[in-house]
Design a binder for these strands. Structure first.
Length: 293
DNA sequence: AATGGCGGCAACCGCCTGTGT
DNA sequence: TACACAGGCGGTTGCCGCCAT
């Protein structure tokens, strides 16, 4: 007898989320907080699996999410953390405020892997690629007999790396950069897992629940032309747009009093900060501290 | 201008882990 | 200790837009 599915899948909707569904989810969570994902869809009037709701909220609807490409520094952080933690994306994400594991995972698979290979670094081992004339095949097509799956390889690699900490070429590069300048940020980044510029990668979450960092995105540089071009009401998905745009898309102004709900749940300071964020148009960072729900 | 290939990313699936009983 | 359940995590899939031809 198999495990019971997380929810009754009969009649449940799958695929991209519609603005209406997003609205219901946001409305419900802002009103009731995050609790019991399994029961949430029913209570919120959604024909979705609880897991799907959780994913949608944590990856796209949370107000503390940053959007857009990872900055150079964030990318370096990801590479370094990956060299130490392997594919533990959630752990990596916990060290990058406003970034989700899914986002980092996607970024790794689509951008960083290629970049590292171009630099002659094996994205799995973080060590220099062998300088043979062998044609570099995709990960799962490496020549040569039965091989472990990528996951198995990575696990093995991780085990090795846990035993022996080796500074990768990239780390050296970054450490060199740290010597040249910007020491406040880079200093000690790769020193150890214990102390890392005031945070411990292993144990201490970088963001406290009450401390959410929101970066103002340049409104003219929305993540991709695709999302901006599809921002008309004909597009049913909200895609990667950030909350302010999202709320706009959802037509909260006319159909959903977002401010009222916010005010009823979060305190005035946070509401003011959120408002400030929503209206800002430069690239400054604003610290928004929502009270614990 | 049409179209086929490719890349990026949102979302799903299934397994794992933590917690309560 | 064993079991059930909910939530979390990582791998994978499939859609969609962009770009080259």
């Amino acid at each position: 007898m198999g495990r019971q599915p997380c929810c009754d899948k009969v009649g449940l909707k799958k695929g991209p989320w519609t603005a209406e569904e997003d609205k219901k989810l946001i409305n419900f969570i802002l009103t009731n907080g995050q609790c019991c994902w399994r029961a949430l869809p029913k209570l919120a009037g959604l024909l979705r699996c609880g897991k799907s709701c959780r994913l949608r909220w944590t990856n796209y609807l949370r107000p503390d999410l940053k959007r857009g490409l990872l900055s150079e520094f964030e990318e370096k952080m990801v590479i370094d953390l990956h060299s130490k933690l392997g594919n533990r994306w959630s752990k990596i994400a916990s060290n990058l405020p406003g970034r989700t594991d899914n986002e980092i995972k996607n970024h790794w698979n689509t951008h960083v892997k290629k970049k590292l290979r171009k630099m002659g670094i094996d994205p799995f081992t973080h060590k220099p690629l062998p300088t043979t004339t062998t044609i570099q095949l995709p990960d799962n097509e490496q020549a040569g007999g039965p091989k472990p799956t990528p996951q198995q390889s990575e696990v093995a690699d991780q085990d090795k790396e846990e035993a022996v900490v080796v500074e990768t070429p990239l780390q050296s590069t970054i450490n060199d950069q740290a010597k040249d300048g910007d020491k406040s940020i880079h200093a000690g980044l790769f020193d150890s897992m214990e102390v890392n510029n005031d945070f411990c990668i292993d144990e201490i979450p970088l963001i406290e629940p009450h401390e959410i960092l929101i970066t103002c995105e340049n409104s003219s540089s929305s993540p991709s032309s695709s999302s901006s071009s599809s921002s008309s009401s004909t597009d049913t998905t909200v895609g990667g747009r950030f909350l302010s745009n999202l709320l706009e898309d959802l037509e909260f102004a006319t159909t959903f009093d977002y401010n009222e709900i916010i005010s009823s749940i979060w305190d005035d300071d946070f509401v003011t900060s959120l408002d400030l964020y929503n209206n800002c148009d430069d690239n400054s960072n604003i610290m928004v501290e929502p009270p614990l729900l």
